[in-house]
Write a protein that binds this DNA or RNA. Structure first.
Length: 349
DNA sequence: AAAGCGGGGGA
DNA sequence: TCCCCAGCTTT
């Protein structure tokens, strides 16, 4: 039997029941594909449900504010996805009359849509013969054909894309693409793949050559960087604090946080107070600065570890960016900040 | 070609 | 710990 026939046959008998598999609405397919980039289905699913509830159509999403979109995205990570999602929703709603492009080439022009997502939407919604090559497909093909080309090299991307194009079922691209991914996720798993029950085991070259655990090959990534964050949690007598929006190119762009002083190592209160511009000048302020957590909270991300200490600043007279403490939950914040807010006991101050 | 970007789950 | 997850954008 042909490769794609086996995959599709397996898929029809093993696929999970997922909400985006009950529709071919390009808005919902696009939404699901963006959310699932570098994200496990179990993690993305609740976000998909809340987004489709809050924003049933692309117009609802386009008419929302960025803060609303980021708040709903909070915790899912890679926030540029949310910003691009919002921007693209406006293009589709206002410039394209609410209609998504109906082909790979035009989908690719939209912000946040790359090769994978354009192929996924084009094939699933419009049955275009565009092969998807995600992490699952890389693994399935690398193993089945015993290919050692690193999947995250440009040569590898080209090679696997070409191979996927050859293998695709041109009659049913939508089912083939999803079958390939689902097969990688459930059967040809990264660890402990289910080779004993695999419908492709007879012809799998990695299994034959005893190289299942070695494939796919991936170039190793840069080392994790350490950073030191000092957050200033201002508390005024009017029960207000300060939140600032992160601007610029770095991590958490667009999200809110307490005023931040980043240092090159752990610092004490003396060094913090000596920092120019951090606190109001003049002696009329009777500031009380206390360290909330002596042991830094280590917020671990893929590419950096953030050693974080929170400083409580009482008796502050606040001028800019002040918000009532009661409204703090309304702002989109990094998980690091959200965790602090939920455990912080205001009563002690 | 390489780096930057989140957070969570599994081994 | 390390690796991976329905990747994309910028440098």
């Amino acid at each position: 039997m042909i490769f794609h026939k086996i995959l599709i046959n397996w898929y029809l008998g093993n696929k999970r029941d997922l909400p985006w598999r009950k529709t071919s609405d390009p808005y919902r397919i696009w939404l699901s594909e963006i959310m699932l980039q570098q994200t496990r289905i179990e993690q993305g699913l609740p976000y998909y449900l809340s987004f489709t509830t809050s924003f049933p159509t692309v117009f609802d999403l386009a008419n929302a504010s960025q803060d609303e979109v980021l708040k709903l995205w909070q915790g899912l990570g890679y926030y540029s996805r949310a910003r691009n999602l919002h921007e693209t929703s406006k293009v589709v709603a206002y410039e394209l009359d609410g209609k998504f492009p109906d082909n790979y080439k035009d989908l690719l022009k939209l912000k946040g849509i790359g090769d994978y997502t354009a192929s996924a939407v084009a094939s699933i919604c419009y049955n275009e013969a565009a092969p998807v090559v995600d992490g699952n497909v890389y693994r399935v093909l690398a193993r089945y054909f015993d290919i050692e080309t690193p999947i995250n090299s440009s040569a590898g991307q080209k090679e696997f894309k070409a191979l996927a194009t050859e293998l695709m079922d041109k009659e049913d691209p939508a089912t083939y693409n999803q079958a390939n991914m689902e097969f990688g996720a459930l059967q040809c798993k990264p660890q402990n793949p289910l080779c004993e029950s695999c419908p492709l085991s007879n012809s799998c070259l990695a299994l034959k050559n005893n190289k299942i655990a070695m494939l796919p090959v991936k170039l190793k990534k840069a080392k994790v960087k350490k950073r030191y964050f000092n957050y200033l949690v201002f508390l005024s007598e009017e029960n207000e604090t300060i939140l600032e929006q992160r601007i610029g190119k770095g991590i958490w762009e667009g999200l809110y946080q307490f005023p931040l002083m980043e240092s090159t190592s752990l610092i004490d209160a003396e060094a913090l107070l000596a920092e120019p511009g951090l606190f109001p000048e003049g002696g009329e302020y009777n500031l009380k600065v206390s360290l909330y957590n002596d042991t830094p909270i280590i917020h671990k991300l893929s590419h950096q570890h953030i050693y974080t200490r929170f400083w409580i600043v009482e008796n502050a007279e606040l001028n800019t960016n002040t918000i009532p403490l009661s409204k703090i939950q309304e702002y989109p914040v990094p998980v690091l900040i959200a965790n602090f807010i939920s455990e912080f006991e205001l009563d002690e101050y």
